[in-house]
């Protein structure tokens, strides 16, 4: 499903974020990206939804070449990918239901359908009782649930998460992981960059460790492997 061939990313300031990375991820996999801060995890994640374009090499997603992709095709790509952020990226002046439905509204989905799908997805993440609340009135875990709901409302084939539990306490983090686990069970590929050692060790999923822009380790049912 995802393929990276000899991908190198050098930022304009000269920082080498990724060096000659080769990677293949199949449909339905659950993959942890681990490694020290600044190792290139976030850059790799950003390549997948084309927030960044590699300096050299090719990135393919579902047979589509993301490097040669034209600018106006990018929105179409992003509609097939759900993205979850460490800082949630919710709009403060929109309610829970508006924030979630946003992802459908920008695609021109009729209001009725937006309503129905938003309710069902908020039900799934356990927020059906707080649809009228604003993000500021929610706890961190609840905000992240809204973010997850927004990411999966389009039934994406791929869910990308950049440190989704980074701002949450361990218990709330596990609630989010349960959500991601269930989403993955239903066939969505999940790629998650994280520093959460306990989560990685207990989930026993594929672990890809990145150090200084290179893949240092790639194990099925792996462990976090870093002592902090």
């Amino acid at each position: 499903m995802i393929q990276l061939n000899n991908v190198t990313k050098i930022y304009p300031n000269g920082a080498k974020a990724l060096v000659d990375v080769n990677l293949r991820i199949s449909k339905g996999e659950f993959v942890f990206l681990v490694g020290p801060s600044g190792a290139g995890k976030s850059t790799l994640v950003r390549l997948l939804f084309r927030e960044e374009v590699p300096t050299r090499g090719q990135v393919t997603l579902n047979g589509r070449n993301l490097v040669r992709m034209r600018e106006r095709e990018v929105p179409l790509l992003r509609r097939t990918i759900g993205v979850i952020f460490q800082d949630f990226k919710l709009l403060p002046n929109k309610t829970v239901i508006e924030n979630t439905g946003f992802a459908l509204e920008v695609l021109g989905v009729p209001a009725k359908e937006v309503q129905a799908r938003t309710r069902s997805v908020l039900d799934m993440v356990g927020l059906s009782h707080k649809t009228r609340a604003f993000p500021g009135e929610l706890s961190g875990g609840e905000q992240q649930r809204v973010c997850v709901a927004r990411a999966i409302i389009n039934n994406p084939a791929l869910l990308v998460a950049d440190e989704p539990t980074g701002n949450l306490d361990p218990e709330t983090a596990w609630e989010i992981m349960d959500l991601l686990y269930n989403i993955n069970k239903r066939g969505t590929t999940v790629i998650m960059a994280t520093h959460a050692k306990d989560i990685v060790n207990q989930m026993k999923k594929r672990v890809i460790a990145i150090e200084k822009g290179r893949i240092a380790r790639d194990e099925e049912k792996g462990a976090y492997g870093y002592e902090l």
């Binding site: 790509l77 993205v83 990226k89 389009n154």
Partner: peptide, 17 residues
């Protein structure tokens, strides 16, 4: 700008924004 960024990330076309 935050709103615009999020719209881009959920796949809104430039014209829609």
């Amino acid at each position: 700008r935050r709103e615009i960024q999020i719209m881009k990330l959920v796949g809104a076309s430039n014209w829609f924004i």
